[in-house]
Simulated assay, not measured.
Amino acid sequence: MIKIEAVVRPERVNLVVEGLIEAGVGGYHVSNVTGKGTQQGVEVFTGRGATTTTRAALPKTVVTTVVKAEMKDAVVEAIVTASRSGADGQIGDGKIFVSPVSEVIRVRTGEKDAAAL
């Protein structure tokens, strides 16, 4: 089993979720976060618009799912397609982190691994 965490622009999260469902993902969760990556923040107007400052931590959304290993490539491709801005993408479109999951347990029934997904 594989855990896939995608940090994406908040305005793209609905497209990402639709892509996950089309790829056959049974469940996911979404968290709103702030952070700093390659984009290095943005200039924002402060006060009455007379001055600007750099906002380092930007709002992002993390979409997390755990899938069977054989679904990894399809799920990653669905996320990339849904979260990329334009044909070539832009800085700030996000990152995808893929890591192994050694065990999953469904609390309600005690089912384990693939049966718990």
Rank of each mutant, 00 (worst) to 15 (best):
E111G: 07
V33G: 10
A82V: 04
V25T: 01
I21R: 15
S83C: 13
V16A: 10
T34I: 10
N14G: 15
L58M: 05
P100W: 07
A115E: 05
R55G: 00
I79D: 03
I21Q: 14
L15Y: 00
G24F: 05
M1A: 09
F97V: 14
L20D: 13
F45D: 00
I21V: 15
T53Q: 05
A78D: 04
G19Y: 02
Q40T: 10
R48K: 09
R9V: 01
F97R: 09
E111I: 12
A57L: 01
T51P: 00
V63Y: 12
V101M: 06
G26Y: 04
T65Q: 02
S31W: 08
V76M: 09
T52S: 15
A78N: 06
N32K: 14
E22D: 09
E18A: 15
V30K: 13
G19K: 06
V33S: 06
E18H: 15
T52K: 15
D73S: 07
V42K: 10
D113A: 01
A114M: 06
V75T: 02
H29N: 14
I96K: 05
V66I: 15
V44C: 04
D113G: 09
R48Y: 04
A50D: 14
D93K: 00
D88A: 09
A74T: 10
V63Q: 09
G110T: 01
N32V: 07
G19D: 09
A23H: 11
T64R: 05
K112M: 12
E70D: 00
A114Y: 09
